[in-house]
């Protein structure tokens, strides 16, 4: 696990230094929220309508931002064949996958936490149940990243990898998006944690299953 943290710290250090991925993700999420904000400017401040719109707008933004982040997650490793450098280290390939997963979740989570207040400002809307919302977003992001990283490792060497990734990713993350959208809607409508327990359970199970499967399969994706 310690080795996974070293990989995650290395990834975050390189990303905060270059800001290649962060800048793209922040700009993209800004554009999405601003476009929706302009489109629905008539209903800004209308709590009932926004409660209906918010889950969809937020998760559209999160899903697309995740695609950008995930598609770039292995770009540093491919350059100079650093992935072979990692494979030469005395670590299980699962530890490499876990490290990449931790850093990608962290980066996406940072962007998502910037989107929430922006959404609140654009729609003149006071977000309720922030701790519950943070939990949903965290689990949803972890679910998307678990599957996405495996697909990214598969597609990174193909010529049209960045085009292929969303095509493969979106059908697989439907079981994450549905409970995430439903539970976000319930929390924004004033629900409590007990109202979203089924959705959280579903998200949790998805994360565990796909983490285990992806960790095992990851070895085969980076083999020559």
């Amino acid at each position: 696990m310690l080795k996974s943290f070293h990989i995650a710290i290395k990834d975050l250090r390189t990303e905060f230094r270059t800001k290649q991925m962060l800048n793209s993700m922040i700009v993209f999420s800004l554009i999405v929220i601003v476009i929706f904000g302009i489109s629905f400017s008539d209903v800004a401040g209308d709590m009932e309508v926004i409660e209906q719109l918010a889950p969809g707008i937020l998760w559209i933004s999160f899903a697309f931002v995740a695609t950008i982040g995930i598609s770039r997650s292995f770009s540093d490793e491919i350059k100079n064949r650093c992935i072979d450098g990692l494979r030469m280290c005395p670590v299980d390939t699962g530890a490499i996958y876990t490290g990449k997963m931790l850093s990608t979740i962290m980066l996406l989570f940072i962007v998502e936490m910037l989107v929430i207040p922006l959404f609140s400002v654009m729609f003149n809307y006071t977000i309720q149940g922030v701790p519950e919302l943070v939990l949903i977003i965290f689990l949803g992001t972890a679910g998307i990243v678990c599957v996405g990283l495996l697909l990214s490792a598969i597609t990174i060497n193909s010529r049209s990898g960045e085009l292929l990734l969303p095509v493969l990713l979106f059908p697989l993350i439907i079981p994450v998006i549905i409970p995430a959208v439903i539970s976000t809607g319930k929390i924004l409508a004033g629900g409590s944690i007990s109202d979203i327990i089924d959705e959280l359970r579903l998200l949790g199970v998805y994360v565990i299953i796909f983490y285990v499967i992806s960790r095992i399969l990851f070895e085969y994706t980076i083999q020559e």
């Binding site: 350059k79 100079n80 064949r81």
Partner: peptide, 12 residues
Amino acid sequence: LVSHDTFLYDSL
């Protein structure tokens, strides 16, 4: 292992 690829991270 030393290869013609350096296995080094450019931004570090």
